[in-house]
Design a binder for these strands. Structure first.
Length: 442
DNA sequence: CAGCAGGGGGCGA
DNA sequence: CGCCCCCTGCTGG
């Protein structure tokens, strides 16, 4: 916080993460939901606000829908995809099997989900590296990377008669996109056309015929008006801006799900996939999120680094003792899983890396502290609880650790085990001696 | 600068 | 889980 002229600026450190958490919780409890999405016989009560925020498509739809609680039927979207997209919109992350990626992206494009409706090739990369954590690096109010023109293209593409994608990539694998990425990133304005064509296909085709695209629209039109294509345009800007945030991006090595074969990705990628499996389990995704969020002290523990600005950092599996444990290899939601991974990397860097490794991260329910050592957390929690099990036999002093007490007791005993080799100085603590030695150097 | 308290990690049992 | 150590921050002279 900063102060100026006597004014204090109070900042809510984990505001974003908290906010997102709350939204997820509300969704879980179906509280304040004001729109129901229906697909494949399943119903998903959600919030217009969230949908509108994440999708212009919905935004438009609601804008023209007087109905208080409309039910939007999504014909061409699979419920699994819908759930994944909802997870993405509410939690900012979603894990998807490589094989399902194309379909998911397509669904995202149809619904114009910001950040997922990637224009061209990069879907993979984008998805995994940037969009996966839209809010992690900056404010996401502005959509992550709205790249929806794609959709337009698609529609228009026919007219263009575009040639379509290079033979190289069979529809099914979204992966080949690396190369185009770069070009795409920077130029997103005009030149894209040609390229996009190619892209379109890749993205769209894999799973289904282009025809389908219309459907969502139709849907829209049914409900009200067709989405204005022009809106879809938006140029975007994504570029590289992102990282201003806390620089998290840089640290996050995200192997990306999509990256798949791309060589660019890190070594991690390979290992990563194995864990992203259950994308499909319907429930898990949702439940897990909630579960992850539940915490003794509210969301605090759930939040990330606690740094300003927020980088969110983690969702943990929550365990009864108040600690949140993460088991990357086995825990539910992919999304969270990834988060975990991220956390691990951020916090411990070297240590908790491999996806394969089963790492348990113990998250403090009171603050952002997390450690791989349960014992470490136990000690840490004393900070919050104020528990000081160790009492000085000579005075009222109490400490939270035995070692601290032993240091303290030396005050009474006069013991000074750390002696300077250069002078008669003796210190009761090693740190004192080290500090003292500095005086000899200068 | 010295003293002290405390947090968190390393390591072994 | 316990013990120990390293490191850091605060305080007072």
């Amino acid at each position: 916080m900063m102060a100026s002229d006597g004014m204090l600026s109070l900042s809510w450190n984990n505001h974003k993460a908290t906010f997102c958490h709350i939204l997820s919780t509300l969704r879980e409890k179906e509280r304040y939901t004001d729109v129901t999405l229906a697909c494949e016989g399943k119903f998903y009560p959600v919030h217009k606000l969230v949908l509108s925020t994440c999708s212009e498509y919905f935004e438009k739809m609601f804008e023209h829908t007087p109905c208080k609680h409309p039910v939007v039927v999504l014909k061409d979207i699979k419920c699994a995809d819908m759930e994944a997209l909802l997870s993405y919109m509410y939690d900012g992350v979603v894990s998807v099997l490589q094989q399902d990626l194309a379909r998911l992206i397509k669904a995202a494009e149809l619904l114009q989900i910001k950040g997922l409706a990637v224009p061209d090739e990069p879907p993979l990369k984008e998805l995994s590296k940037k969009n996966a954590y839209p809010w992690s690096s900056r404010d996401d109010r502005s959509s992550p990377h709205p790249k929806r023109r794609r959709r337009e293209d698609m529609m228009t593409s026919t007219s263009q008669g575009s040639s379509l994608p290079p033979p190289e990539s069979p529809p099914s694998s979204p992966q080949h996109h690396q190369e185009s990425n770069q070009s795409w990133d920077h130029s997103k304005s005009h030149s894209q056309d040609q390229r996009e064509d190619g892209v379109d296909q890749r993205v769209g085709d894999p799973v289904e015929p282009a025809v389908e695209f219309s459907s969502p629209k139709q849907e829209a039109s049914h409900n009200q008006e067709p989405v204005d294509e022009s809106l879809v345009k938006e140029e975007v800007i994504e570029g590289s801006e992102d990282n201003q945030g806390e620089g998290m991006d840089s640290r996050i090595e995200y192997g990306g799900m999509g990256g798949g074969d791309s060589n660019t990705g890190g070594e991690e990628q390979g290992s990563k996939f194995p864990h992203q499996l259950d994308t499909k389990h319907p429930q898990p995704l949702h439940e897990a999120v909630v579960e992850a969020l539940a915490g003794p002290s509210g969301m605090q523990g759930w939040l990330g680094t606690g740094e300003l600005g927020g980088g969110f950092s983690m969702l943990e599996g929550y365990s009864e003792d108040g600690n949140q444990e993460v088991h990357p290899a086995s825990t539910g939601p992919h999304g969270t899983q990834q988060s975990h991974q991220m956390v691990a990397l951020n916090k411990d860097g070297t240590r908790i890396r491999g996806r394969e490794a089963v790492v348990t991260i113990h998250q403090c329910p009171f603050c952002s502290y997390s450690t791989v050592r349960k014992h470490g957390l136990t000690k840490h929690i004393r900070r919050h609880t104020g528990e000081k099990p160790f009492t000085c036999p000579h005075c009222p002093y109490r400490s939270s650790t035995k070692y601290a007490m032993s240091n303290h007791v030396r005050i009474h005993t006069g013991e000074k085990p750390y002696s300077c080799t250069l002078c008669p100085y003796r210190g009761a603590q090693r740190a004192a001696l080290i500090n003292h030695l500095l005086t000899h150097k200068s």
